[in-house]
Computed example of a mutant assay.
Amino acid sequence: MTAFIPQQLRFVIAEIDKAIDSHQQWYQNLLRVLVSRVSPDEKDRLDDAHQQCQFGQWYHTPQADLIQDHPTFISLGVAHENMHKRAKQLIDLVLAKQSIPVELFDAFNDDLEKMRVQFYALRHEFADLVQNLDPLTGAQTRAGMQAELNKEHALAKRSQQPSALVMLDIDHFKNVNDRYGHAVGDLLLTKTVQSIQHVLRPYDQLYRYGGEEFLICMPNTTLEQAQHVAERMREVIAEQKITYDKAGSELYVTASLGVTSLDPAHSVEDAINMVDKAMYEAKSGGRNLVRVR
């Protein structure tokens, strides 16, 4: 799976908005069944009712693969399935003309509230990502970087879950701008980010740190795993062919990368300084290299 691009983020937000609207309508219809005893939708009485609603159909299709590993998305799916199972129990009791235990109704409402909170948490996260995207490359800007890194650092402290940082700098980028012009430099940045995104996971965080420098935060990733991913990024950047004029002229570039852990024992600032030093070691070592600290 690749990292998000702006169009994908907007698609996810649109699907979440549809889900919020459709479930609000679904809930109103369910209340009519429970209170006014109107006939229920037969789909709500199926064992796989959670796969039959509009959100469920999207959740269980390849279109949702973009965020299938996102923890909130997984929790949302669990709450959604539980809610539909309890809704089926409520409907069956109504049709059997039996009273509804308050515990069952409260459990149903608890799952409904969990869904609501997770829906809006996902939407808020992805909306923030869209807002903070660099308009040229599609990478995230530094505007929200510190807060997100602090959040990941706190999570690493609580869960002892490893995380890693990668700093990437395009080699001789100034020479590209000087020789070919800024338009070609912009094209190079855009194409390089696209190449990087095909290596990263959707929940890896890619930031445009400086002009031609990028910082990647990789949650739930060991130092060894991050080094492997960094080597793959270095390879795909070196392999890309950038056509920059109508004659089909091609430009080749390389990048130098540093890798370090987002160590809970040290501050986020310490980790950024460490990965920056590792990247400069790759530069001084001959470029087109990965160095680990």
Rank of each mutant, 00 (worst) to 15 (best):
L31T: 15
T2P: 13
Q225N: 07
S22Y: 01
S75L: 03
A164L: 05
L46P: 02
Q24I: 06
K88C: 14
S22I: 11
P162R: 10
Q8E: 15
Y244G: 11
G258W: 03
L223N: 14
D110H: 05
F73I: 05
D110N: 15
A49H: 02
L9V: 11
A14R: 00
D44K: 01
D204N: 08
E113C: 02
D270K: 07
R142L: 04
Q227D: 05
E103Y: 02
G210L: 02
Q68P: 00
K114H: 11
Q8L: 06
G77W: 09
L30W: 08
Q225M: 10
F73A: 09
A79E: 01
V259M: 15
N150Y: 05
N109E: 03
E269S: 06
A164K: 05
L200F: 05
R179I: 15
G211T: 11
F214R: 03
V259N: 13
K191A: 13
D276N: 00
A183D: 14
L122K: 12
V94N: 14
P101S: 04
H70A: 02
Q227K: 13
L188I: 10
K246C: 07
A14Q: 10
G210H: 03
Y244K: 07
S267A: 00
A154I: 08
D69S: 11
L168V: 14
I5H: 11
V236P: 01
D111G: 06
